[in-house]
């Protein structure tokens, strides 16, 4: 089994294999996006309190979920690289950071665009918003560390440690709306009793979340491919690739 793992876990095989996966993941993502946007922007009825303004939910909530999910992937991949020295895991962690930062940024900005008409303010320093902002800084710190350290293996190790320390922030973000009195509303979907949202509004939201998941899977592979090339730029197989490209 380990032989199998080492063969397909090697950077070269990952590079070849990912090329096959990216178009499929991307295609599924596009179909889901079209379905989710139609459902969310056209088919779902306006909210009884927020009118059409609630439709921001379909980019805000999936972005926020992804910002947490990608962080956990990044920390797990970082730990895997740290403990078992798996090069592909390091590449995945490094490729995840800009995507996680993008989704965190989107969660914050779309939240702000939603807060202004509904709460009357772009920003408040409540627990949910502040902890999400800290998440953005964790991602940016990780990325800065990667560019500041020239040796890529040292950078991966330092980044993994930063990412693992930052994991404490994740439950804080998730439970912030329960632990503190926040202006941000409590959970609508991820709670134990039935979600307090009508099915016609919920289904597009779940489809959008799935679309963002596939987007992340496709783009993280795309980015990891580049990271692997950069890691292995002096290896024989990358030289071969270049020979092929020269034609």
């Amino acid at each position: 089994m380990f032989e199998y793992f080492y063969k397909y876990g090697s950077p070269r095989h990952f590079y070849d294999l990912s090329k096959m996966f990216v178009p499929w993941l991307g295609g599924i993502c596009l179909i889901l996006l079209i379905a989710g946007l139609t459902g969310g922007l056209v088919l779902a009825p306006p909210d009884y309190q927020q009118g059409e303004g609630f439709r921001i939910i379909y980019v805000h909530v999936p972005s926020a979920w992804m910002s947490l999910f990608i962080y956990m992937v990044m920390a797990t991949a970082g730990a895997t690289g740290l403990i078992w020295k798996v090069k592909v895991a390091d590449a995945l962690a490094r490729a995840s950071a800009p995507l996680g930062a993008s989704f965190t940024f989107l969660a914050l900005v779309t939240g702000s665009l939603w807060g202004k008409p509904m709460w009357g303010t772009w920003w408040v320093w409540d627990a949910r918003l502040t902890s999400e902002l800290i998440l953005l800084f964790l991602y940016l710190g990780y990325m800065a560390l990667q560019t500041a350290i020239d040796d890529r293996r040292t950078a991966a190790r330092a980044g993994a440690i930063l990412a693992l320390v930052g994991v404490v922030n994740i439950p804080i973000i998730h439970y912030s709306v329960e632990w503190w009195h926040t202006l941000h509303q409590g959970p609508t979907i991820t709670k134990l009793d039935a979600p307090s949202i009508h099915i016609s509004m919920l289904v597009p939201l779940l489809i959008m979340a799935l679309a963002f998941m596939f987007y992340y899977a496709a783009v993280v592979l795309l980015r990891a491919r580049y990271e692997i090339l950069e890691n292995e730029r002096n290896s024989a197989w990358v030289c071969e690739l270049i020979e092929q490209r020269r034609g």
Binding site: P46, E52, G53, R55, V59, L113, P117
Partner: peptide, 14 residues
């Protein structure tokens, strides 16, 4: 419904 600026900026930026 009057929320055009907020909704479309959120979608456009994303």
């Amino acid at each position: 419904g009057g929320y055009a600026f907020y909704v479309w900026s959120a979608y456009g930026l994303s």
